[in-house]
């Protein structure tokens, strides 16, 4: 009798579990809907606008016609210049934390600083960039100031991803290298860094997509609403795709829908290509690693 009762109980427990499991399945799947919807809408409404002229011409007639070439060029300037600053610094910081730092208060402070940097709102980065680079260091509103602001913003991303890939290199690799008489730096340079390069690359590519999409951080530091010419040096201002999308969808009246959706499509396409690249590099790296 008692065993019969317990099966009833078990049955109700199992059916309850099935219910919860299917609810969770539905919520997880529900996330597919907005992602798919966003990409579909952008593709359907933006695709008709995309042609060579749209990509390679400047905006004309009060930004209601023409193309987005200066914005694309500006975005690339910002991406590459910010990578130039943030990569070496981020990799050095990660090397310090993973290879040199001891478990003490100082290291805790560095970790807290990294976590804090990762959580600072992008508009506050913009204020910092304005105060520090534009005004204090007198760089003016320029590609340089904007890139420096972006690179500070991306620093925690690079540090975290580099650290993870350094951590993945087995200790035995280092020990083997020390045993043949290599110094600590030689071990890092000839063994640890080459083996963690794909992981570092993944983080770098991911930070490219963040830089490409960022708007608030470059708002007061170097990006212009509209420029009739292309930037010639890092001390010029530039346009950016993200900023251009903001401008034409909220600040300018009478922009045709296809033009704004086209711009959004180019931006999300760029971000998506870069992200896919990072996922591909990562999965290739995982399946080909030597240990």
């Amino acid at each position: 009798m008692s065993s019969f009762k317990s099966t009833e109980l078990l049955k109700s427990k199992v059916s309850k579990q099935k219910w919860v499991e299917s609810i969770l399945l539905v919520t997880t799947f529900a996330l597919f809907i907005p992602v798919a919807a966003i990409f579909l809408i952008l593709l359907i409404k933006g695709y008709p606008a995309i042609n060579l002229n749209f990509i390679f011409a400047g905006p004309s007639n009060g930004m209601t016609e023409g193309g987005i070439f200066p914005a694309i060029v500006g975005t690339f300037w910002l991406i590459f210049l910010s990578l130039f600053f943030t990569c070496p610094l981020g990799i050095l910081a990660a090397l310090y934390l993973n290879e040199y730092a001891r478990d003490n208060t100082f290291t805790r402070i560095i970790n807290l600083a990294i976590i804090n940097l990762a959580g600072v709102p992008s508009i506050v980065y913009s204020l910092f960039g304005l105060g520090a680079f534009v005004l204090f260091l007198k760089m003016g509103t320029s590609i340089l100031s904007a890139s420096l602001t972006l690179s500070v913003m991306n620093l925690p991303v690079i540090i975290t991803s580099t650290r993870e890939s350094l951590l993945a290199v087995p200790k035995s690799f280092r020990e083997a290298c020390w045993n043949v008489g290599a110094s600590k730096w030689q071990t890092l340079w000839y063994v640890v860094l080459p083996n963690s390069l794909p992981g570092i690359l993944t983080g770098v590519i991911f930070s490219v997509s963040r830089a490409a999409g960022e708007t608030a951080a470059i708002l007061f530091t170097g990006v212009a609403f509209y420029l009739p010419f292309l930037p010639e040096s890092i001390f010029d201002q530039c346009m950016a795709l993200s900023m251009h999308l903001y401008t034409i969808s909220t600040q300018v009246v009478g922009v045709p829908e296809s033009y704004t959706f086209g711009t959004a499509l180019v931006l999300i396409g760029l971000v998506l290509i870069v992200n896919t690249l990072s996922i591909v590099v990562r999965s290739y790296y995982r399946s080909h690693r030597k240990w």
């Binding site: 050095l92 310090y96 600083a113």
Partner: peptide
Amino acid sequence: RDRIMESIIFLGGLSAVIFTIGIFLFVIKE
């Protein structure tokens, strides 16, 4: 070479702290 690299790497490690302080400092300054 090890000493030199160690101090460069140490400066890199310090960067996150410098920027965190810098952000507070410059926002408060303005």
